[in-house]
Simulated scan of single mutants.
Amino acid sequence: MKELIEDLLDGARQIGASDLHFIPDANQVKVQVRSASKLAALQSMDVELYDRLTLHMRYWCSLPESNQRIPQSGVYELNQDVIRVTFLPSFAQTSMSWRIPHDTFELQHLLRSHDVERFQKVVASHHGLFFIGGSTGAGKTTVLYALLNQLKHERIVTIENPPEQMVDGVIQLEVNAKAGLSHRHLLKETLRADPDIIVIGEVRTDEELMVAYDAALSGHLTITTFHTASIQDGEKRLTQLLGMATVERHWCVLTRNQEVTCEWSTFR
Rank of each mutant, 00 (worst) to 15 (best):
Q93W: 12
R249D: 11
Q28A: 09
E117S: 09
A212Q: 00
H183W: 14
G16W: 10
T266C: 04
D214F: 14
V85K: 05
V170W: 00
G169S: 04
E189A: 12
H227I: 03
T239A: 13
V85A: 10
A229D: 13
G234R: 01
L107P: 01
T54L: 04
D46W: 10
H227S: 02
R204Y: 03
G133T: 03
R249W: 02
V85R: 11
V82E: 12
W251H: 08
L39S: 01
V33C: 07
I132E: 09
S182Q: 00
L181K: 15
K236C: 15
E160H: 01
H185A: 13
E248D: 11
D206K: 13
S97A: 12
I156Y: 03
E259P: 03
G128P: 06
Q120R: 15
P64F: 10
F87D: 07
V33W: 06
V29H: 02
W264H: 00
A212L: 00
H127L: 09
D194C: 05
E235H: 15
H220Q: 05
Q120F: 07
G11I: 05
T261G: 08
N149W: 06
A179V: 02
R69Y: 13
Q32D: 08
A17W: 07
W264E: 11
Q120Y: 05
D115A: 04
L254A: 08
S35V: 09
Q108H: 15
T222Q: 05
R13Q: 11
D7A: 08
I83K: 06
R58E: 03
L144Q: 05
I5Q: 05
T54M: 07
E6D: 06
L242S: 02
S135R: 09
I156D: 03
A17C: 09
A229F: 08
E207I: 03
A124Y: 08
R52H: 08
W251L: 02
R118Y: 08
N79P: 07
T224Y: 00
E189M: 10
